[in-house]
Amino acid sequence: MKTHNILKIGLAFLLYSSSIGLLWAQQMMFADSSRLGRPFSKDPHVVRFEGRYLMYFSVPPIPDQPGGWGIAVAESDDLVHWERIGEIAATEEYEKNGFCAPGALVKDGKVHLFYQTYGNGSKDAICHAYSSDGIHFTRNTSNPIFAPPANDWSNGRAIDAEVYAFKAHYYLYFATRDPKGEIQMQGVAMADADTDFGRGEWTMAKDASILKPELDWEGKCVEGASIIKRNGQLYMFYAGSYNNAPQQVGVAVSKDGVNWKRVFDQPFLPNGKPGEWNSSESGHPHIFDDKETGKSYLFYQGNDDNGHTWWLSNVEVGWKKGKPYLKE
């Protein structure tokens, strides 16, 4: 009888251990349904702050209400399970038509958020705010802080901000469009290391596109740059083609943060196969360098219904001989 009970306890423990193992191996699938009543979250960006992970993401306009796109916040302790903990309310005149596409960094004990205005066509620009708790933000009084000059290669729009410290400067990567508003491409501005991120601090690092669509799968769009440093070089994970075209993720590399070349000619992270959750796209990447674990995770958005819903997920990225690869 005792032996029988021991076997039962052992079996229960094995089953419990197996269930925990499955939980650990579970793929992240997160979406906020608070605004539309269906899963709809885009543009993920993650930081580690005060002992937990915070993810900033775009949420859509609320039907039949004033305002536009917004930014919400979720937290996690394992990068798999996320809980929505707040939303950043529009407080300024320049945010009234909407704001979205957050990019964040932690500096001097504060979360610095870079985001775009939305709904203003070629007048959309990059804004900055900062927070001591990661949820409640104070706006930079000089907002919007950056947009490129309208000229022969750019229509003056700036969206999808990514700010990264490199070689005694901060580089602000952004997407803009050609003067006709048809081709989306990457540009970059820079500021000194002691910047307060305000307007007037940024100058164009190159008065031309640093990466524009050239490959068939990139269509007419290269956007959503996200940067990571490895072995003294910068790697850019970017979105190629417009949403659901399908949008897929590519990778480029740079020694100086300004001049870039592609690492792969094919998508690094393609859209899923028919029947998979991301068959419409795998897009808008964020490469997160987790200093706590030494691991890299690629966050991205996807769906299987041409944008009726949007989910956020991630996959671990490994590095071998100066190139990233997707871990199984």
Rank of each mutant, 00 (worst) to 15 (best):
W82E: 01
K96Q: 15
G103V: 07
N120I: 01
Y94F: 15
Y94P: 07
E93A: 08
D108A: 12
C127I: 10
N140I: 00
Q65S: 15
A101G: 00
M55A: 12
D64R: 10
D64Q: 14
H81D: 00
Y94M: 09
G109S: 05
T141K: 13
G68K: 04
D77L: 10
F57A: 04
E93D: 14
A89D: 07
H136I: 08
R84V: 08
Y118M: 11
I71Q: 01
E93F: 09
G98W: 00
W82M: 05
P63I: 03
C100G: 04
D77Q: 10
K110F: 08
E83F: 01
N140E: 15
W69T: 14
D133V: 15
K123P: 00
Y130G: 04
P60G: 12
G70D: 09
M55K: 09
V73T: 11
P60W: 04
Q116D: 14
N120Y: 12
D77I: 01
G121S: 07
L105E: 11
G119N: 06
Y94S: 03
G67H: 08
C100F: 13
E75Q: 15
A89F: 01
G86E: 01
D64C: 04
L105M: 14
A129W: 02
Y115K: 11
M55H: 07
W82K: 01
G67V: 06
M55C: 12
V106G: 14
G67I: 06
G86A: 06
D133M: 14
T117Q: 02
T141W: 00
H136W: 06
N97C: 02
M55V: 12
P60M: 07
Y130F: 14
I62T: 14
F99D: 06
A129E: 04
W69G: 02
R139Y: 05
V106Q: 12
C127P: 09
I135V: 15
Y115F: 15
Y115I: 05
G70S: 05
I71T: 02
S122L: 02
S58W: 10
M55D: 15
N140Y: 07
G68M: 05
D78C: 07
G103L: 10
H136L: 06
A129F: 03
G121T: 03
G68V: 06
K110W: 04
L105S: 02
V80F: 02
E87N: 07
R84T: 10
G67R: 09
T91H: 05
F114K: 09
I85W: 00
L113T: 00
Q65A: 12
Y130S: 13
T141E: 15
T141V: 13
S76I: 06
V73Q: 05
D133G: 15
K107P: 01
G121C: 01
L113E: 01
A101M: 10
L79G: 09
Y94G: 03
K107L: 09
I85K: 14
V59I: 15
C127G: 10
E75H: 12
A74C: 03
N97S: 10
G121E: 08
E93C: 03
G67K: 12
L105R: 10
D64P: 08
Y118S: 11
R84F: 04
F114R: 07
P66Y: 12
C100V: 04
M55E: 13
V59G: 04
D108R: 01
E95C: 03
P61D: 07
I85Q: 11
G119K: 02
A72R: 08
